[in-house]
Amino acid sequence: MPLDLEEQEQLDQFKAFWHKYRNLITGVLTAALLVYAIYSGYQWWRNSQAASAAQLYETMISAVVKGDKEQSFQAADDLQKQYARTPYSAMASLVAAKIASDSGDAAKAIMYLRWAAAHASNDGYLALAKMRLVSQLIEDGSTQDSAEADQILKETPVKGYEVLWYERRGDWYLAQKNTAQARSSYEAAWKQLDQAKEFPEEARRLLKVKLDAVGGLAK
Results as ranks from 00 to 15, higher is better:
residue 8 Q to M: 00
residue 209 V to N: 10
residue 196 A to P: 06
residue 77 D to H: 07
residue 173 Y to W: 10
residue 116 A to T: 12
residue 64 V to P: 00
residue 187 E to F: 04
residue 67 G to Q: 03
residue 41 G to I: 01
residue 208 K to L: 13
residue 153 L to H: 01
residue 130 K to W: 04
residue 215 G to V: 09
residue 158 V to P: 02
residue 87 P to G: 06
residue 70 E to M: 09
residue 161 Y to R: 11
residue 12 D to F: 02
residue 199 F to C: 03
residue 2 P to S: 00
residue 72 S to K: 01
residue 53 A to M: 10
residue 147 A to G: 03
residue 102 D to V: 00
residue 137 L to F: 10
residue 46 R to D: 12
residue 92 A to R: 07
residue 28 V to W: 01
residue 56 L to P: 01
residue 63 A to Y: 02
residue 181 Q to S: 11
residue 176 Q to V: 08
residue 205 R to T: 08
residue 52 S to I: 11
residue 60 M to Q: 06
residue 189 A to V: 04
residue 13 Q to D: 07
residue 124 G to W: 06
residue 110 I to Q: 14
residue 150 D to A: 15
residue 125 Y to P: 07
residue 78 D to I: 07
residue 61 I to C: 00
residue 33 L to M: 11
residue 110 I to V: 14
residue 21 Y to C: 00
residue 63 A to R: 01
residue 89 S to W: 10
residue 84 A to F: 05
residue 102 D to F: 01
residue 109 A to W: 07
residue 98 K to H: 08
residue 87 P to S: 07
residue 39 Y to D: 15
residue 206 L to C: 03
residue 132 R to W: 12
residue 66 K to Q: 14
residue 142 S to D: 13
residue 85 R to E: 11
residue 116 A to H: 15
residue 171 D to R: 04
residue 126 L to I: 01
residue 3 L to K: 00
residue 40 S to R: 15
residue 202 E to W: 10
residue 154 K to R: 11
residue 122 N to M: 13
residue 108 K to I: 05
residue 48 S to H: 08
residue 1 M to E: 00
residue 187 E to L: 08
residue 130 K to I: 05
residue 3 L to C: 00
residue 203 A to N: 09
residue 211 L to D: 10
residue 192 Q to H: 02
residue 159 K to A: 05
residue 127 A to G: 10
residue 49 Q to Y: 05
residue 143 T to F: 06
residue 164 L to T: 06
residue 162 E to G: 06
residue 100 A to G: 02
residue 35 V to Y: 12
residue 94 L to R: 10
residue 36 Y to V: 15
